[in-house]
Nucleic acid binder design. Structure first.
Lengths: 145, 145
DNA sequence: TAATAAAGTTAGCCATGGCTAACTATAGCA
DNA sequence: TGCTATAGTTAGCCATGGCTAACTTTATTA
């Protein structure tokens, strides 16, 4: 599977998010969500369909394929992880956190994402749990765990 | 001053970084640093010159203007802040941290950057200092400080 | 000083990803 | 059933930001 551009990731994420309710999404919904024109959605959807991530009925519904659902969940997960970090750890405003997550989700490596998530888990844990996590980390053989 | 695209920010940052040694930089240095072709550097440098951020002698040196130095320092500071967070807090490898910083520096809002920096300061402080910072924060009237 | 290497420029190509204008299809309702 | 609003499509434009090929300028050095 070829890597998606940030832009295509955004479109797939939007289609995925809108699909969670009904099982499908529509171009106009994506257009409204991402605040882009309908022709922009149209060409992005074509590109995603060409990669086998979704199917697009002519003048009709957009349905994610299994691969599309998987990729959409992955992207959506990145977004949620970052937004949670911004809100729970950095105490940022919800909207601002969403916007930052939206941009940062395309910028960070999987490794950085993983560590940001782990830091959030650690900092959100109650003190006793945190001590346990720290102790386990100290026992671990991993260099940077 | 118009906002710079991520790409132009990278070129300006490169010119700034290379200038720190000698007071000027050259296109071939930027080309090597950013791993892009010389014509790409050439057109980016033109765009930066058009914005008054640097001057470019024909077939010669590139010198940052005062505005360019200011902007370069700002961008470079963002980069350093993020890299420090990735290395000192997330315990990431230097190279990986540099790459992630390079991409994330264009994605995060000033507010997010500020908070990431503050978090790094807090977590890197020794326990007693940390307690003091926490106490001050508790006394502060700011909502999310 | 003339040849050559290195640096810089120009022209022109391409992909991505936006947009508007104008058209077509579908659906809901009088 | 036909009108109209909404949705979707197509064509074509533009800006950004890469690239190569071919050229010019500058610097080095034999």
């Amino acid at each position: 599977m070829k890597n998606l551009s940030p832009s295509l990731e955004d479109y797939l994420e939007a289609a995925y998010t809108l699909s969670l309710k009904e099982g499908f999404s529509r171009a106009c919904g994506i257009s409204r969500l991402l605040k882009v024109s309908k022709p922009s959605v149209n060409s992005a959807v074509k590109a995603l369909a060409a990669r086998g991530l979704l199917e697009h009925e002519h003048y009709g519904y957009i349905r994610l394929s299994p691969a599309g659902l998987k990729a959409g969940a992955e992207i959506s997960g990145r977004h949620a992880l970052l937004k949670d970090f911004f809100v729970s750890v950095l105490a940022m405003d919800e909207n601002q956190a969403g916007e930052d997550a939206c941009r940062a989700e395309h910028a960070l490596s999987p490794e950085a994402l993983r560590r940001v998530g782990a830091l959030a888990v650690f900092l959100k844990a109650p003190p006793r749990r945190r001590l346990l996590l720290a102790a386990r980390s100290a026992m671990s053989k991993r260099k940077n765990g």
